[in-house]
Nucleic acid binder design. Sequence first.
DNA 1: CTGTATCCGTCCAGATACTG
DNA 2: CAGTATCTGGACGGATACAG
Lengths: 135, 135
Amino acid sequence: MIPERIEVTSEHHHPTHDDCRRVSTILTRVGDKWSVLVVILLGDDSKRFNEIKRMADGISQRMLTLTLRGLERDGLVTRTIYPTKPPRVDYELTALGRSLCEPVRALGMWAQIHLAEIEDARRAFDQRTEVEGSV
Amino acid sequence: MIPERIEVTSEHHHPTHDDCRRVSTILTRVGDKWSVLVVILLGDDSKRFNEIKRMADGISQRMLTLTLRGLERDGLVTRTIYPTKPPRVDYELTALGRSLCEPVRALGMWAQIHLAEIEDARRAFDQRTEVEGSV
DNA sequence: CTGTATCCGTCCAGATACTG
DNA sequence: CAGTATCTGGACGGATACAG
């Protein structure tokens, strides 16, 4: 029972303020430096802290902790502690987390498909700007 | 002719480093505070600077300028200057910009559908954390 | 191993004032 | 109207050291 459209401001058929703020909110969360990377990396099986850290390659311990906490807070990942010695903590995507993967992957596909196009546009823009600057 | 899958690192069938970095890059760009909002607001017809500013409601002039420049640089919007008096500048989504709307809307739908779920998770988490803190 | 605490430099966003 | 310039506070990310 997935609603086709949730509730859009008044009559306007194309999403407006409320709608966009929501999108914006989620994208802000999702768009931070590491969250999506971690979500995708988690994939289907649970993983340990350092395992993720190695995969992410470049993330600091601090940032990984913060990122995982954020994802946990949003109900996207679960955190399971095994009080062994040394301690072991497993992270795993929740159903919600896995469901997020779909639209994110779609965006990822878009990114890959249009990457060259965007980079060309950037080069062109930078050149234009540069020329202006040197006049 | 949209490729099902572009090129994923070696054998692994689930996206890895390269893949993820790309997604991450785009999401970072897309995930900043105003870009997506502006893209969605632009919709199908061109709009003027202050027109967008009014719709965005809360964005500063500076941020709107920077956001639009960024989008223009990435080839997502065009900027048309009419040297009238007073000057008039129209912004419009490019084909690339419009194509971005689709995955973004998908994410938006996801956000709307799961908003309550996420907020519940947040409340639960905060409560748990709070309890721990007070012990 | 899996964190937390602290320090610190950088970037970013907002406010304000000014310009073509 | 549509910007640019400048200043400033705060958030963010990284490095490091320490703890359970």
